[in-house]
Each structure stands twice: as C-alpha cells, then as structure tokens.
Simulated assay, not measured.
Amino acid sequence: METNKALHILIGLDLSEMDQYLIQYAKILDHILNVEKITFIHNLKLGELPKELIQKDQLELIQKRIVKRVEDQIASTEITYAHDILVTVENYSEIAFTAVAKKSNYDLLVLGNKQKLNGTGALANKLVRILPGATLLVPETFQVPIETVIDAIDFSRYTNSIMLWADRFKNNSKGQRIKHSAVHISKSYWSYLPMMTEKELDKISLEDIKEKEEKWNKQYPHYTDIEIIPAKNQNISAALIAYAKNKKADLMILGVKGSTGIKDIILGSVANHLLHRPTDTCLLFVKPIK
C-alpha cells in the first residue's frame, strides 16, 4: 500500500451539530493527506419514519432536502476537494455503511466521537469492528492544527498498518510538519499473580521493555525511538489516554485488535475501552494490511 496514495474518504453524518465539526475536520485532513474524493453519507432509518413518509416520492424529497442541507454546510467551509453526498435508506445504519463500503473501495471512514454532545456512539462502536478499512473517530473537542500524532504499537500484525498511516501523516505531500511518537504500553499477566514480589515484577517488566525495544529497533531502525511504559495498575486504554493527554496528542493510531501472546492483553478490549473513554484526541483504528 502506498504512503502517498490518493485516498477516498467516507464521512458519516447524523444531521446533528456534530456534522459541522466533521465537515471542518474533512478540510483539515485535505490539508495533510492526499485526498482524491470525500463522500458524505447519511442513512435514513426506515423504522424511525412515520408511514406517510416512507412512500417513494416522499423519501426522494427528504433525500433531496438532506443533500441540500449538507451541501450548504460544506460550501461554508470553502473546500477544495472533490466530494459527493449520499443519502441511503435502510432500517439499520450499519447495513447501509457496509454496503457503501463494499461498493466504494474506500480508504478511511470518519465518524463523530461525541464528548459533550448527545449521542451513544453505538454505530461507531459497531462500524470500527465490522468494516474492513480504517476508521477515524473525531471528537467535537478536537484541536487544530494536527501537530502531534501518537502511534500506539502492539507488536502484532496490525503494526504495519499503524506505521503506514503514521507515514501518511508524517511524510505527507502537503508539507505539514507533524511530530510523531511511538508508544507501547507494557501489560504483563504476571502482575496479577499475588505470589510475585515487587522486585520480581520490576525485573520481569524491565526484561519485557528491553525485548520490545530490541524488536522495535530491528523492525523500524529508521523511525523514531519507541517509548515503552509499564501499565502497572492501569489498564492499557487508561494508560494510552493518559499518555495522549500528557503529550497533547491531536491523533492516536492503533489497531482494533492486538497481540494474543500470553504476556499481552488483547487490544480488541483496549479498543472497546477507548471507545467509552472521554478524550479530546482523535482515534484512528486500523486493520491489518492484506
């Protein structure tokens, strides 16, 4: 996969206040990444419409009005990228997004990650897992410009995908200067054994850190050094959020699942916890390179 590939980005809208933030963020991405086209998507849930509005002519009228509304919002941001607006009609939005994803051969899906605005995040939670491509969750509290990106490394088959997206931001063709830092949160199952002394746990932790540093330097000798942080009594998601906050990170890249080795916690659970934690950092979840 090319670092500077022209990207097709899908952006999910829900006709709430969040839409304007996502439209603004699309412009920010266009100033960094090589964007070929952006498709804005909204799904009309049939089950939530009154019977008199599910007739074909009424649905078409609603779709046209939604397109007009979104087009007006986009126009106010003075965008320069090619775009289109798609209004689907399905009972379940995950079905609509899955169908569009299969047809469009997209590279990135962008969704809102509401912090103070009303919303459950249920759709994002599902789509992060079921769709084949990368998903970026953007809080309405995001910071601009994008200056600091964290690569959350788990030493699994997802690491190459994380590094690909890291390169797309770091070595972008638009000349934007972005600082990267790679981090691995070390969480050993040994820490749960009550018979281990603190000295023994520290020794195991140091050995694990040394092993991961050597592995990183061997696989990515020309990249930045990796910072390996023992999670200790924190879970991995809490440690990552704390690290991102400390670094004032604008974006964090991580895999949806991670290593299943005996020493590591599955990052699938980490992703799940991150989806339910408040954060001003945008979260980019990636899938393995095929």
Rank of each mutant, 00 (worst) to 15 (best):
F40N: 00
F40Y: 15
I41W: 15
I41D: 07
H42V: 04
N43M: 07
L46S: 07
L46E: 08
G47D: 15
G47P: 14
L49A: 02
L49M: 15
P50E: 04
P50G: 01
P50F: 07
K51F: 15
K51A: 10
K51W: 13
E52K: 11
L53N: 10
L53R: 06
I54P: 00
I54M: 03
Q55V: 09
Q55I: 10
K56G: 04
K56V: 11
Q58P: 02
Q58V: 08
L61Y: 12
I62Q: 09
Q63D: 11
K64A: 12
K64M: 13
R65F: 08
I66S: 06
V67Q: 12
V67G: 04
R69P: 03
R69W: 12
E71K: 09
E71P: 05
D72Q: 09
D72W: 10
Q73V: 03
A75Y: 12
T77H: 10
T77E: 13
T77A: 05
T77L: 05
I79P: 04
T80Q: 09
T80S: 12
T80E: 11
Y81H: 03
A82V: 12
D84N: 11
I85M: 06
I85V: 13
I85K: 00
I85A: 00
E90P: 02
N91C: 07
S93L: 12
E94M: 08
I95Y: 12
I95D: 14
A96K: 00
A96C: 06
A96N: 05
A96E: 12
F97I: 10
F97L: 14
T98P: 11
V100S: 00
A101K: 05
S104A: 10
S104N: 09
S104F: 14
N105E: 12
Y106K: 05
L109T: 03
L109G: 00
